[in-house]
Each structure stands twice: as C-alpha cells, then as structure tokens.
Amino acid sequence: MNPQKNRITELLGIDYPIIQGGMRWVARAELAAAVGNAGGLGFISAHTHASADALAREIDQVRALSDKPFGVNLTLLGSNAGLDYEGYVRTIIERGVPVVETAGSNPAKYIETLKANGVKVIHKCVAVRHALKAEALGADAVSIDGFECAGHPGEDDIPGLILIPAAADKLKIPLLASGGFADGRGLMAALALGADGINMGTRFMLTQESRVHPAIKQRLLEATERDTLLVGRTLGDSSRVIKNTVSLAAIELERAGGATAADLYALTGASRWMDAFASGDVEGGAFPAGMVTGLIHDLPTCAELIARILQQAAEIAARGLTFKVPAA
C-alpha cells in the first residue's frame, strides 16, 4: 500500500494524500502555504473574509509564500447569507485557484461554474447519501466527515470506522477521510478503509504556522478525547466544540428546554469563538475542536508533521502483516 501516489494526489497535483481542512479563521495563507510546501494540499477559508477583495488578497499571499497547489474552502450556510458568495467564486476563478472545497448546503449552484473554469471541486459531507448527491452533481472528489470531527458532524452519529468504508463502497470518485486523523496510523487506517487520503483540521490547527493564539493551542494540547461536546443538538444543528464554561452553559440551556437558535448563538456563535482564537481567552467562546485532540501532544511545523506522518505510515507498511487465508 503506497500512501503517496494515488487518485487524490493525481487529481490535485500534490505529493502526498494529506489535506488541510478549510477551517474558518484558522485556514490562512501562512498555514495553507506551509502545507503545500510540505507536499500536501492547504486551504484558505473564503468566509473568513468579509469581501471578495479581501479573499483576493489572501490568495495573493498564498502565492507569495508558495508555488504549490492550494485551495479555497467555500462553506455554504444559511447563517452566512450576507456574504458575497458570487464575488468569492468570481475571485477564485479570476485568480486561477486550482481547487475548491465546498461544504454545508447543496453546492449545485457553483459546481458547474467552477468546473467550467477548470477548478477541481471537493465536496465535504457527513453522510453517504450526501456524498452520492455530490458525485451526481459533478464533484471531482468527496471528503466524508465522521462523528469524531470538529464543527458540524451532522445528526446521524456515524463514526469514521463505518462511514468511510460505507462511502467507499458506493462512490466512484476519490474519497478523503475526515474527522479523527492526526498521524500515520490514521492515514494507513483511512487507506485500508477505502479512502484515498485524509483531511485534517484540528491537527493542522496545532502547528507552528497556525495563527491560533498560543493559549488556545495549549488548552487543546492539554485536552483528552473526552474534552469535546456537541452543542446545538436540540436544534438539529450539532457542532463539536471544546468543553469549557461557555459550551457547558450552552448544554445547560438546551437541557432546560425551549432554547432558541438566538439563545444558543449568543453563547456559541462564530464571532465569539473567532475572537477567542485571536485573544487567547480559553473561556471566551465555544471554539470548534475534534475528539482527535486526545492524540495531539505537540506543535510541530507543517513540514515536520507531514514528514512524521509519512514515516509512521511507512513503518506500519513495512511490518508486512499478512494472514494465512483458510482453504475454501
């Protein structure tokens, strides 16, 4: 099993099947460029930026730091209705961005336009039925996000161990495994389950090139696999976040009954946790984090991280574990 050259590396023009998640606020030029320079594929987040012009400047910054492929995450949510998505798409095309990761709502409105202009489209989803729909709409690849992931895992509560092979069994296009990946063990497991590569958010957030405040990074390094929880369950809009006073207050509000979206947003809204990422206030918001925090214990550079993942994967492959097949 060679974790380097396969359908996803050929599709995206990268060296290794290791993708950096397009996390809001976190996915900036410095991080995306560092991942690309190390042989993976980095993303910047469109809706981090208030305007298409601001996104254009971020794209230009990636190009100033790297000549490697990179992508733009385009998360389509009703709560982002005021954002200039048409302008984002126009800027992506005009700037010659090679890859877009769509997420959230149905991407049909933009897939045809992006593909007609030579942009590869990866759609991130949380269910096999959504992955098949994205394939039917013309997505070039799908990223399937298991229950373990940071942010929105959907409402089916299917972990990656089941979701990845279930998607691989039905999809014809390349598949990325997302949610719960941090090392070479995860990469090899994803490949064994039928994926073509891995997409990592929380792990890349905890690197030297990430702009997340050091205090937040330290809080996540100290976290175990039990230190995240889901808010928004009562509204059918679950989001996995770090366990702190803000997220626990949101849970108590939901348990009391009658909590509205506005009630929860006052606690868990993106504006609060983005401010916390910048200020370092570990109790300042319900910031997204995956269960995989329990597997992360240091802050390497992106180059060090990817090299380590590949080394560990190679060591696993070198074990050459085989089983005697019983006679029929």
Rank of each mutant, 00 (worst) to 15 (best):
residue 168 A to L: 07
residue 44 I to R: 05
residue 80 N to T: 00
residue 305 L to F: 01
residue 172 K to E: 03
residue 45 S to F: 03
residue 295 L to K: 13
residue 155 E to V: 13
residue 314 A to N: 01
residue 141 A to D: 03
residue 324 K to N: 11
residue 208 Q to N: 08
residue 317 A to G: 13
residue 48 T to E: 01
residue 169 D to W: 09
residue 181 F to Y: 12
residue 234 T to E: 12
residue 31 L to S: 01
residue 212 V to T: 12
residue 42 G to Y: 06
residue 293 T to C: 13
residue 77 L to P: 13
residue 221 L to N: 14
residue 124 K to H: 10
residue 91 T to K: 10
residue 150 A to K: 01
residue 154 G to D: 02
residue 47 H to Y: 10
residue 199 N to Y: 09
residue 92 I to H: 03
residue 236 G to F: 09
residue 38 A to S: 07
residue 36 G to W: 02
residue 51 S to V: 01
residue 67 D to C: 08
residue 204 F to G: 08
residue 238 S to G: 15
residue 283 E to L: 00
residue 87 G to A: 08
residue 166 A to T: 06
residue 280 G to W: 00
residue 323 F to D: 11
residue 238 S to N: 14
residue 103 A to M: 10
residue 85 Y to Q: 07
residue 273 W to S: 06
residue 50 A to L: 11
residue 199 N to H: 13
residue 320 G to Y: 01
residue 297 H to W: 07
residue 166 A to V: 12
residue 138 G to D: 02
residue 274 M to G: 12
residue 311 Q to M: 07
residue 253 L to H: 10
residue 146 G to D: 08
residue 35 V to I: 08
residue 328 A to M: 03
residue 325 V to N: 14
residue 82 G to P: 06
residue 308 R to P: 06
residue 147 F to L: 15
residue 18 I to D: 01
residue 94 E to I: 14
residue 123 H to T: 11
residue 214 P to H: 14
residue 8 I to Y: 03
residue 276 A to D: 11
residue 36 G to P: 07
residue 117 N to S: 08
residue 207 T to R: 01
residue 247 S to W: 00
residue 77 L to D: 10
residue 123 H to I: 04
residue 287 F to Q: 04
residue 188 M to Q: 14
residue 74 L to E: 01
residue 231 V to Y: 04
residue 267 L to N: 06
residue 87 G to Q: 01
residue 25 W to D: 11
residue 50 A to M: 13
residue 145 D to E: 15
residue 18 I to K: 02
residue 140 D to E: 05
residue 166 A to Q: 11
residue 117 N to Q: 10
residue 53 D to P: 07
residue 306 I to S: 05
residue 75 T to R: 02
residue 257 G to I: 15
residue 44 I to W: 03
residue 253 L to I: 12
residue 167 A to G: 12
residue 213 H to M: 01
residue 290 G to C: 12
residue 43 F to M: 05
residue 273 W to Q: 09
residue 66 S to L: 09
residue 134 A to R: 06
residue 119 V to F: 06
residue 41 L to P: 06
residue 292 V to L: 01
